[in-house]
Design a protein around this nucleic acid. Structure first.
Length: 403
DNA sequence: GTCAATTCACATGAAAGAGACCACGGTCTAGTG
DNA sequence: CTAGACCGTGGTCTCTTTCATGTGAATTGACGA
């Protein structure tokens, strides 16, 4: 009986008309055939890496811009095109794309080099070898390849922040030792100021050329949305004015096109689940709330126990009082929670860092302020609406075994 | 009233340790011819 | 004789602790008007 119900549901599901034509188009890893409003940047990139086709070393390139401004897309697009030409003319060019933000892939020197070597077909263990050794393996295999290698390092700021700028120095220097191959680096970064903090030597060799991607304005986002929506949804699904609202929302968030696309995709999914045949503003609002909720829930669930305990302490204090919370207070409560749960309490030093990290993930807001005679501390507050707070509270209580 | 010194309550840095993982090479053991 | 099991060594990585140093403004107290 029950089974029949489910089967029936699935069958109906298949028959039911989807409002999507091709949902893939709205997903963040989709790369469209043309990239509107980025012609200048793409041309610029093309000019810079074009010498590769004559096997001259292209200048190292540095690309900046906020998230969702099409940096990665443009770089990938241009390098793909150049690869097509290269393949046609049998020019030995290789392009490696590495996202430095992905944990466990390329967030340390060792892992980055190991990943590069792996892409050259070498098998490198995840750990256990001296970094020096991995360098040698990488270096030898590049030299044997007799190729022009373009390495794209996406979110390079994350790598530098975690592993220092020595890597870049070494990578740029490797070139001088290679006899048969050439390496060119393309760095992509969200962080506009991070270059100021790296070693000047590295800076000058790495950013021989720089391109800045300005944020999209609302009109540009609108046209991007319109184009993708045309491909993704069937006709007459999207309500009048929805695109405008979505674009306005994304423009407010520093012109993040990725966000706008996600918003409209989720709105579509919600509408579909409700069995509606068109997407209206109401769905957009729901989508916005859902994205935020999912994001926070993800963050909270994936935190280690110690972070959860700290967050729980903050939440507890936040519930009791309305004014801002101080580090010392959090630490006291945190210690109590630890003894309740049977967790070994960490030092205040560590908790200070934990709080800073929670701030980074956006779930709390912590600002360092000086209270004059009464010291210097972080003022902490929750940066989420209260109905989500309750939810977090529940998740944490469960996760910590306090429920 | 003004101004520099003081002081608080942490923030922030640096270094180093602990424990988990892992590869490599050498040694031991048991099975095979 | 050889394949496989089993150490010990040396390496990375992450999370912490320990020790040291830094910091911004309310408060204090001396000083001069």
């Amino acid at each position: 009986m029950k089974d029949n119900n489910i089967t029936g549901f699935f069958e109906k599901f298949i028959k039911k008309d989807s409002i999507f034509k091709e949902k893939r188009v709205l997903q963040s890893n989709y790369s469209p055939d043309n990239i509107p409003h980025r012609e200048n940047e793409i041309n610029h990139i093309a000019q810079i890496i074009a010498p590769a086709l004559k096997l001259d070393k292209p200048s190292n390139l540095f690309v900046y811009g906020k998230t969702g401004t099409g940096k990665t897309l443009s770089v990938k697009y241009t390098t793909n095109k150049i690869m097509e030409v290269a393949k046609d003319k049998k020019i030995p060019i290789k392009v490696f794309y590495i996202n430095c933000k992905l944990k466990k892939v390329a967030d340390t020197e060792y892992r980055l080099i190991a990943e590069l070597a792996r892409k050259l077909g070498k098998s490198i263990p995840a750990t256990g070898l001296p970094t020096e050794e991995v360098y040698k393996i990488f270096y030898n295999s590049v030299d044997k390849e007799k190729t022009l290698l373009v390495i794209i390092l996406d979110e390079i700021d994350q790598l530098i922040k975690k592993a220092g700028d020595e890597i870049l120095y070494n990578l740029t220097r490797i070139n001088e030792d290679l006899d048969n191959s050439i390496i060119t680096l393309i760095g992509i970064s969200n962080d506009l100021v991070f270059v100021d903090n790296i070693d000047p030597r590295v800076k000058s060799s790495l950013s021989e050329e720089e391109i800045v991607f300005p944020p999209y304005n609302a009109l540009q986002i609108q046209s991007i949305l319109t184009e993708r929506i045309k491909k993704a949804f069937k006709e007459d699904i999207i309500e009048q004015g929805l695109i405008e609202k979505c674009a306005a929302y994304a423009a407010r968030e520093h012109g993040d096109a990725r966000r706008a696309l996600e918003l409209i995709r989720v709105a579509g999914e919600i509408a579909e689940r409700e069995g509606k045949q068109n997407v209206v503003i109401k769905h957009l609002d729901k989508a916005e709330a859902k994205i935020e909720r999912d994001r926070i829930q993800d963050i909270v669930c994936s935190q280690p126990k110690q972070f959860q305990a700290t967050l729980y302490a903050i939440l507890k204090l936040n519930k009791e009082r309305n004014d801002s919370i101080l580090t010392g207070e959090v630490y006291e409560i945190y210690k109590k929670i630890c003894s309740n749960v049977g967790l070994r309490p960490l030092t205040q030093r560590r908790i200070s860092d934990v709080i800073a990290e929670l701030d980074m993930s956006g779930i709390i807001t912590a600002k360092v302020t000086s209270k004059g005679r009464y010291g210097r501390t972080r003022e902490i507050s929750m940066s989420v609406p209260s109905h989500i707070k309750d939810k977090i509270n529940k998740i944490l209580a469960e996760g910590l075994g306090l429920a």
